[in-house]
Design a protein around this nucleic acid. Structure first.
Lengths: 340, 340
DNA sequence: CTGAAAGCGCTAACAC
DNA sequence: GTGTTAGCGCTTTCAG
């Protein structure tokens, strides 16, 4: 090798020499293992400090078989939904001194295979697979050699653990809140019908309405894109339909904001005439909306935290959970549903 | 160690045995080094394939002194601005088979120190420091043992390389575009005065106006928060000022959107009466705005790509660049400045 | 209580 | 052409 004794790389041997002990002793002193005279331990610690010793984790990992690293593989590119998830995961992992190796496969299967190989070669202790495609994705399989947790996206195998947000219960909370604030004629403006999120939110809305003895204005959800433009168009349709309505549950904050704008510009007062609830608690939308939006927060940071925690358990050989774990959403109240 | 021969961990020794050769030969065959009979090479490759051999990168790194890993340390938490940057960095790194270890220090100096220690212990080949605080941040120092590049945030030492977006030139492009589309009475609605971004954008606007022989409507930029609400308020102020104006350069898309809403609701037509340009090309804002916003894209993915590329050069011992490298912004035209 | 020695998985000299 | 050996930096028996 060209680089012998590269700049400043202090090893246990160096510390040992400086402290006048053997490398084995240094190891014991630094890791608090074995029986050492406390004076020796102090001397070693002092030497280590003085030389600026930083243990080489690679060497340790080679020996222990653990890298204290988890791979995070995002199937689509890192986006708005992945960020809080990463933050939550880091919280859970950081406490266990684990690090995150980040890979974006961008929906490309070839890339995904590549990254999986890389992560295995790097001997990560476990993998979090994430990605927004809230529709089901193929499992890595049961004989994948290390623990895997799916976060925010669902594996097609129930042997795997998928940690998911709770669209359905979230939608129920939204509708219940509209009902509790006195709205009885509720419409539902949603996203593209093929998305799992759309379907789950519609189902939750239906459940809550049924429980309240109500039914959806127009009988059906209105489907469109996840955009403000669609929200505005939906507002037009509602106003033109001739149906009376005093509440709208929107499947995203973008849609909700569009609906709020559409209604206001059509002369309908929010929240006085109509209450609106969105989903996402995406602050730039929810807070900038006129009025600011009451919305369902899907609790993605918590989701990331839980996914990481479950992965850690599996890595440590504890009962590996499986199936689907749903993380409860919560309601954030703002002006769009205020009464009085 | 508890776990001897953990599940499925195939080593060169296993491959060697299976192929009836020595470990050294396996290494040569797999890495295309040395002189081997091609038949032997084939046999080894076949065995490796069959056993599902995946080389342990840790062992290789321990030997070579390189981990093919870079640490990415975000000073504030990962946000909207960090995402494209990460994507760009990954593009550049992935090509070189490097992986990214992600650490969020969240603006906490203790955490930052901790993560730096971790990254050093993991023997990363280099570090990208990023974070949105576009004001200057303290350098890690010249005797930091591995290469460091600052991306999106500026080091206080000119010995370091800071890769930054180009607020000033971007602002010039914005104002020039307004001028080229026939606007001569241009106002500037900006963010908080203490932010570097605010100052740089104002400076660029002033330069471009001076070059066109124009001066700012109201003489001064209007300062407020980075929000739509501020944009709406600024629109009111402009309309009430009695000054004539036909162009507004806004220092963010959020502000620009607020201005567009404020003007429209005040009976001013955009783009017919007034052209608007924003900054960020933040699609959920720029495209949802009515009308959609012409805006300056700060090219953050490219910024990430460049930062990673420069880091790779430094790691490979090439001329380590220093000082400030500005990544050119570009203009994205949408309806808010359309003419005819 | 401390030192010596072996070995994690791999690669690079140097023999043969 | 291929095998053997040594060693990357660390931890962990096992002697002493």
């Amino acid at each position: 090798m060209a680089q012998r004794k590269a700049r400043g790389v202090v090893t246990v041997a160096d510390v040992a020499e400086h402290a006048g002990v053997s490398p084995g002793t240094v190891s014991k002193a630094l890791n608090g293992r074995g029986q050492l005279k406390s004076e020796t331990r102090q001397r070693v610690l002092a030497s280590a400090e003085k030389l600026g010793f930083a243990p080489n984790l690679l060497a340790r990992s080679l020996l222990s078989g653990r890298t204290y690293t988890v791979g995070v593989l995002t199937t689509d590119s890192v986006g708005r939904f992945t960020i809080p998830l990463l933050t939550g995961a880091e919280d859970a992992l950081g406490a266990g001194q684990m690090s995150m190796l980040l890979c974006e496969s961008r929906g490309d299967a070839i890339r995904e295979q590549h990254y999986l190989r890389v992560l295995m070669a790097r001997r990560v202790d476990g993998i979090i697979i994430t990605g927004r495609s809230s529709n089901v994705r193929p499992s890595l399989g049961q004989d994948f050699p290390i623990p895997v947790v799916y976060a925010l996206c669902q594996s097609d195998s129930m042997e795997d653990l998928s940690v998911l947000h709770d669209d359905e219960k979230g939608a129920e909370m939204a509708v219940n809140h509209l009902v509790e604030t006195g709205r009885s004629r509720i419409a539902h403006v949603s996203g593209p019908p093929r998305h799992a999120a759309t379907q789950n939110r519609s189902r939750g809305a239906a459940t809550a309405l049924a429980a309240a003895g109500l039914s959806l204005v127009l009988g059906e959800p209105l489907h469109g894109e996840w955009s403000e433009a669609w929200g505005r168009e939906a507002a037009q349709r509602l106003m033109r339909s001739g149906e009376r309505f005093n509440g709208v549950f929107c499947a995203s904050d973008q849609i909700a904001r569009g609906v709020a704008d559409g209604l206001r510009e059509g002369g309908v007062a929010v929240p006085e005439d109509v209450g609106i609830v969105g989903v996402d608690n995406w602050l730039p939308m929810a807070e900038a909306s006129r009025p600011p939006l009451t919305t369902i927060d899907l609790n993605l940071a918590e989701l990331g935290h839980i996914a990481a925690t479950r992965l850690l358990s599996a890595i440590e050989g504890k009962d590996a959970a499986s199936g689907i774990e749903r993380v409860p959403a919560f309601l954030v109240k703002r002006r769009s549903t205020e009464i009085g």
